[in-house]
């Protein structure tokens, strides 16, 4: 998987596993995962907001962890399992509908980052308490201040998950 020192330190062709699709492409060292996902692959749900790891809008799930794609070098992601927000409707995750029904967004720009952070939480803990939801979402910034609705939405999604829907 990892190449030995024969590489010249420059761009290399690697395979990214995103939402169960494999993308083989030449990645330059200075490309962040967010740039690759958003700009090169056109998965524009992964948003650029602070660009410095301080807002959570570019959150994707990598090997089960909610991480900031703006602070991740894409070249370091070979073989990792990456999930972006676009996958949620494909797999029928109830978070998207729960967010819409609970008005857990205003302008919506930061929302996919919240949703992916919440998804990582529910993947680990399908029945979170309010404090656990706050623990998970406290690093996401919403300039519209929609915070209280996120708690309702995540609790609602957890309930829908319990109902046997995935």
């Amino acid at each position: 998987m990892v190449q030995k020192h024969q590489d010249d330190g420059g761009g290399k062709k690697i395979t990214l596993k995103i939402n169960d699709n494999e993308y083989s492409m030449v990645i330059e060292p200075h490309w962040t995962l967010r740039e690759v996902i958003h700009d090169k692959l056109g998965l524009t749900g992964t948003k650029e907001m602070c660009d410095k790891g301080a807002c959570g809008s570019c959150t994707v799930i990598m090997d089960g962890r909610p991480i900031l794609s703006c602070m991740t070098l894409a070249i370091e992601c070979e073989g990792r399992k990456i999930e972006t927000v676009e996958n949620l409707e494909v797999v029928g995750n109830p978070l998207v509908e729960a967010y819409a029904d609970n008005h857990a967004m205003q302008c919506g720009y930061c929302t996919p980052g919240f949703v992916m952070t919440a998804k990582a939480l529910l993947d680990r803990n399908p029945d979170p308490a309010v404090e656990q939801i706050k623990d998970a979402l406290e690093g996401n910034i919403c300039r519209c201040g929609t915070y209280p609705a996120h708690i309702d939405a995540v609790l609602d999604a957890a309930k829908r998950l319990e109902g046997g829907k995935k």
Binding site: G53, G56, T59, R65, P66, T117, E138
Partner: peptide
């Protein structure tokens, strides 16, 4: 330290 996401990284 920082935020949950930063701690995950």
């Amino acid at each position: 330290t920082a935020s949950p996401h930063i701690r995950e990284m």
